[in-house]
Design a protein around this nucleic acid. Structure first.
Lengths: 110, 110
DNA sequence: TTCCATACATACTTTTTTGTATGTACTTGT
DNA sequence: ACAAGTACATACAAAAAAGTATGTATGGAA
């Protein structure tokens, strides 16, 4: 099944735009790709794994992704603090869409 | 075939980010959805079809999309001028990826 | 001669996003 | 008493994207 019958030109454009808003920004995909495949990572691990990201940006984007239901945050009441991030089911469901985008860029002429 | 073996966490994230850059912005998808299905449209038709868009934004985004190889511009040397826009093959190849994104948003919990 | 339609261009302002620098809370180890 | 490690928060500045207003070239019609 495809979606051609569920959406009009307008609602289709709008829905895709909405989907992209979840992923837009300079850092979100870098964060998500760290978590694909069931990975679980701490704040400081992500910070180290993504060169150039600042704590502010990391915190901000993680908060957004969590609010959007793409990642899950788990805090352990320890000192020093420990917080773990992983994908939600819906976050994992992103894979086919990202795959399709990769396939598309792969087709680019020249 | 899927793309999991062609990309690392970094190159995958980077490639998807690059793909999204072609589509980002408030108007591009609205423009593209007007052209899907082999549609051919003039500047002024697009302007009327997309409520709220300004001539500046329309011109700017069309220029970007053309430069990126997603749409094709054809100008007829008439007065008053006539210019037609349509998708390139690569632009039409976007469909499956957008479909996948629509499917993803459709799965969103709540 | 002035007007009209089309497809833009350009200067400027506002809004949004990103980056920089610095600060905080908590507790264990020295 | 103080430094150390972790996961943030916050004020401010810079850069990028979007919006507003106005201008331009063309040639045929009135």
């Amino acid at each position: 099944m495809n979606n051609h019958e569920k959406y009009t030109r307008y609602s289709g454009a709008q829905s895709v735009t909405e989907a992209l808003k979840f992923l837009e920004g300079r850092w979100k995909l870098l964060i998500l790709f760290q978590l694909f495949g069931g990975q679980i990572m701490r704040f400081s691990e992500l910070e180290r794994a993504i060169p150039g990201i600042t704590q502010k940006m990391l915190g901000q984007q993680l908060k957004q992704l969590e609010k959007d239901g793409i990642i899950k945050r788990t805090a352990y009441p320890e000192v020093p603090p420990r917080v773990e991030y992983s994908l939600t089911q819906w976050g994992q469901d992103l894979c086919p869409a990202l795959d399709a985008l990769l396939t598309w860029t792969g087709k680019r002429p020249r």
